[in-house]
Write a protein that binds this DNA or RNA. Structure first.
Lengths: 133, 133
DNA sequence: TTTAAATAGGACTATGTTAGTCCAATAGAA
DNA sequence: TTCTATTGGACTAACATAGTCCTATTTAAA
């Protein structure tokens, strides 16, 4: 099963909402209420988008979030990486060394799977947030 | 995270092994031993490939499995469906009615996500087992 | 006709991931 | 000082995946 996570869906909905908003700043509460997204979960997601320099925020009363990149400058690939971490389609394709695959010696399909990985990656790099807003 | 399951990886390895074998029949044990795949798990996978009319089998001593389709006639998409069930990239895109998404009314991204779904699907339909053997 | 080798298949468990919750701290405007 | 908002750590619940165990059933060979 190959699936984009609920968190990424929520992120897309949030970014759509923010990019359509007339106000300078949009609060997590607003987004949560209008899109039926659990508030606490959404907060975490927005923070990750901030850390990835997709959003910026101001705290305190009248605070909120705003976009600091144009939607067409944000590949879906980056969004997914920011939220869920690695996007490798198979564990063994992960760069991190602590994810050593015990089949390394005998694996007969590593090369074609890598190729598939690249094609999926390209698809998700081509897609940007502007395709969703 | 978007990922093909270990089961699908095992299926690809098994199909590669079978398609390269000189013998008419290949046993689950042979495949399991030479590829380091857990025997019981592999058995289940081969049975599913049989139900999907990718493999056929004969039981009993000297029994085993054999391919009944050419690798280039088996889209990766079908393999994944046979083994893991639905391949929708988002829950809400599932056809089955018992998978009702509670965001249906408010979901703002259904249409672009559907489009992405189609593109991913096409990629996995284009790829066939012959790309892996 | 017995035995061994093989597929067939149900039920169960262990582990890991995802989604979601709870709580406390910090920042800033009114 | 109080209220509103982001920040962020820790935890829990639910679910999916991977793997195991056990018992038929089928068939060729001894």
């Amino acid at each position: 099963m190959i699936r984009i996570s609920k968190k990424v869906e929520y992120a897309l909905m949030a970014l759509k909402f923010i990019s359509h908003s007339e106000h300078k700043l949009v609060t997590a509460r607003e987004i949560s209420d209008t899109n039926n997204i659990p508030y606490d979960l959404l907060s975490k997601i927005l923070q990750k988008l901030k850390n990835e320099n997709i959003l910026a925020s101001t705290q305190g009363t009248n605070g909120g979030y705003f976009l600091i990149k144009r939607p067409d400058e944000i590949p879906l690939y980056n969004l997914m990486n920011a939220i869920d971490g690695d996007t490798a389609i198979a564990e063994c394709l992960n760069e991190s060394t602590d994810n050593y695959c015990c089949l390394t010696e005998t694996c007969s399909i590593k090369s074609p799977v890598s190729k598939l990985q690249k094609e999926v990656e390209e698809l998700f790099k081509r897609k940007t947030i502007s395709d969703f807003v």
